[in-house]
Write a protein that binds this DNA or RNA. Sequence first.
DNA 1: TTGCGAAATGACAACGTTGTCATTTCGTTA
DNA 2: TAACGAAATGACAACGTTGTCATTTCGCAA
Lengths: 336, 336
Amino acid sequence: MATMDKKNVSMNDVAIAAGVSLKTVSRVINEPDRVRGSTRDKVHSAMEALGFRANFAARSLKLGRYGCIGVVMFHLSGGAVDMIDGIADAAEERGFALTMIKKRAGEKMTLAEAARRMSQLPVDGMIFNLRQMVDDFDTFEAPKDLKTVIITPMEHPTCSTVSDDQEGGARMACEYFLDHGHKNVYFVSGKKESLSSQCRMKGWRAALEARGIEPPEPLQGDWNADSGYAAGLVLADKPDCTAVLAANDCMANGVMMALRDKGLSVPDDVSVIGFDDELYKTIPNSILTSVKFRHRELGVRALNEVVAGLEAPSSRSRTLVSGVLVERSSVKDLRA
Amino acid sequence: MATMDKKNVSMNDVAIAAGVSLKTVSRVINEPDRVRGSTRDKVHSAMEALGFRANFAARSLKLGRYGCIGVVMFHLSGGAVDMIDGIADAAEERGFALTMIKKRAGEKMTLAEAARRMSQLPVDGMIFNLRQMVDDFDTFEAPKDLKTVIITPMEHPTCSTVSDDQEGGARMACEYFLDHGHKNVYFVSGKKESLSSQCRMKGWRAALEARGIEPPEPLQGDWNADSGYAAGLVLADKPDCTAVLAANDCMANGVMMALRDKGLSVPDDVSVIGFDDELYKTIPNSILTSVKFRHRELGVRALNEVVAGLEAPSSRSRTLVSGVLVERSSVKDLRA
DNA sequence: TTGCGAAATGACAACGTTGTCATTTCGTTA
DNA sequence: TAACGAAATGACAACGTTGTCATTTCGCAA
């Protein structure tokens, strides 16, 4: 209404305008049932007229909590979107907002450094999204008053962790090959430093060894299709190669294209499985069977773990979110 | 050291431990040059010993600002990652953290509702990432004390906006076709409600009409490869179709696959351009020419605009970030 | 009308910082 | 050594809320 706005409208201003005490205004906001209807209305109109909005800082100072969860992205990749989505939705549902910081390109951020920065910000707990190894992983101790959950496939001595079951997913894919009569499985890896790639490789190895099969030398890729194509050209020349597990869908597609260019057919000559189940977005009528992880669920679990730990910060748990094998037709059944 | 930790260590505790006044501790943190070296050391050791960390709420309350920028994601898609990355890096560089909230699936969030929620949070300014139309877009007025920047291709009456130049990108691609001797350009759109798709279509139309060409009926897609494939099957039967502009790379790939399956070659029979330049990640030796937008830059600009507006919240600007045509070999030169 | 318990409201302190201004201490010069 | 200005430090209020406890007002029964 009036154009002359005080910089900030405080509860006191509202109280004066409504002709009540400051504390009554506070009650209208926090325990409206304890205020008479007529008083409540007066206060509400005053708030409306003055454009009052509660001051976050003062409120948090008094309450000793913020209602915010910190998120540290050590790594921000495509799959991260679904995870953030899950974190944000779960946070919203439980009445929390998110405060986010990010490792900058080139910067070498340790867990301790991340914790230090976060503890300067308005957060009650925090989530680290960690996809690569950091120097102080094993020695890191979270601040005692800040529940910390790490999203990582590695186990941590003191902090709760949440992870996709990448190893289990790879094992599942591998066993799927073997159960369909394949005698061996080749593997195309992602970037060396990626924990996802390492875990997927580990699961692949484990599955083969569990059946007494000597794992062949894995082929080094870099997540992109071209590296998969290069691997495919090599694999096409191996007569014993009937099954290829690629650490993601893009490389799996590269492998398939190379095989095709070498005159081999998928799945008639070689079977292929990928990871992440995203090829169908880019390739029409995609036939690629793929291991899909529920990134959204991962985010939800991480947030819930933080919130659950708000009262018992020293508790510690380990959560694994299993993957799903999305079956299409890129694997041939060699039995019978 | 000692296991008995008080819940929170305050400046006062540090002051007592160091044998100085509370204000001196404050000075050690905020204006260390005004404190004698020996005193500074005493205080630092005391802080270290007690594990002191400044209280965000008290500090913000006194200072009247938070050092945080709010980000509202009305939409969280793949391209959003790079944008968030840009926002986060720019924020970090300028000493701000990010506070994020998200529209939940199914929820119908208006700008007013987003602003209301944000103004309860610790933010000095905010960024809305808006990729679809909302009901109150034209009537929305940002809180006077909270600089608001909207990332959207639409112009807003009172708020600053930042956007990719989607229309310009589409025009650029179209003109590229025409400059290479093509007489007409077909268009495959994304989802109807997407502003990106609408803008790209608008640019395509404008470019054709500017040269006196009647735009053919656009084909409706849904961003995924299968819809592009369907469009490609239709286009393969049109004898006058030598050039296809698809609203993203996935659909462009679908179109190319359909053309191939119909016995046509790209680019010999039909030329194709896509958007977002991401096909090379999935397809080995990709030949697709594509319009790439600099999402990261978009985020950086948006954040800078907010920070710049912190002192003059009523200022208003419109920023367009141009796209880039990444040339490969999917367009044939028909001249000569 | 009076008296009573319950409901509604208010006064005041406290949360942990920083700004203002007064006071003490220091290093120099006379 | 005394006196001085500058540097260092401290006392106290203030930021805008909420918790505690005291006070006022209400509705109802006697």
